[in-house]
C-alpha cells in the first residue's frame, strides 16, 4: 500500500479541485438555455387559466432563474396554433368550448431533463395526455401514467407533485400547460 498522503497536501489538492469546480460553476452559470427557458415559463404561467400549486412553485423557480424551458412559442397565449406540426386543430369554432379539438404538443426542460407531451382535445375536453418523451435523469414511470391520468380525470393542470419526482412533475406540468395554451379557444366565452 502506498504511504499516507500528507494532510497539507490533501488540503492543497482539495483547494485545487474546489477552484476547478468554482470555475466550472461560474462558466456554466449563464447558459443561453436558461434565458430562453425563463421567458418561456413566464409566458406559460401568465397564459395559464388554471393556476395551481404547481404554477406557484414554478413561478418561484422562474423568479430565481431556474432552468425551465418551453420549446414551443406559447407567449401569445394560445393564438399560435401549435408547434412541431403535429396538432390538428379543429376548424369548428365554438364559444362554449375552452379548448379547440386537436392534438397539441408541449415540452419543458429543467436540470434533470426534458418531458414532452401530446394533449388530445375532443369535444372541448382533455381526452388524452400522452408523454411522448421523457428524457430525464429519472425513469418515466415515476410520472407515467399517474400524471396523464390525473389530468384527464380532473380536466385540470392542478396536478399533485409526485413524491420523489418533483422536477419530473414540474417538467410534465409545464409541458401540459404549453400544449393547453396552444389549444385555447380564442372565442371562448366562459
Amino acid at each position: 500500500m502506498a504511504g499516507k498522503m500528507g494532510s497539507k497536501f490533501v488540503a492543497l489538492a482539495t483547494l485545487a479541485v474546489g477552484a476547478i469546480y468554482a470555475s466550472g460553476y461560474a462558466v456554466s452559470g449563464e447558459s443561453p438555455r436558461a434565458a430562453e427557458t425563463t421567458s418561456g415559463s413566464v409566458a406559460a404561467s401568465n397564459a395559464s387559466s388554471n393556476p395551481s400549486p404547481g404554477s406557484n412553485h414554478a413561478a418561484s423557480n422562474v423568479s430565481s432563474g431556474a432552468n425551465h424551458t418551453a420549446s414551443g412559442d406559447a407567449s401569445a397565449a394560445g393564438s399560435h396554433g401549435t408547434t412541431n406540426g403535429a396538432s390538428k386543430p379543429s376548424s369548428h369554432v365554438d364559444t362554449a368550448q375552452r379548448y379547440l379539438d386537436g392534438t397539441y404538443q408541449g415540452s419543458a426542460s429543467n436540470r434533470i431533463g426534458t418531458v414532452a407531451v401530446a394533449v388530445t382535445i375532443h369535444s372541448g375536453k382533455i381526452a388524452e395526455v400522452q408523454i411522448t418523451q421523457c428524457d430525464t435523469h429519472y425513469p418515466e414511470y415515476d410520472i407515467d401514467p399517474v400524471l396523464p391520468q390525473y389530468v384527464v380525470q380532473h380536466q385540470s393542470t392542478q396536478i399533485p407533485v409526485v413524491s420523489g419526482a418533483t422536477l419530473s412533475t414540474e417538467d410534465f406540468y409545464y409541458a401540459v400547460l404549453q400544449a393547453l395554451n396552444q389549444a385555447k379557444n380564442p372565442n371562448y366565452k366562459g
Partner: peptide, 10 residues
Amino acid sequence: SAYTPGDALR
C-alpha cells in the same frame, strides 16, 4: 439541451 455540463456541476 437536456444534459448541459452546467447541470452536472449543480
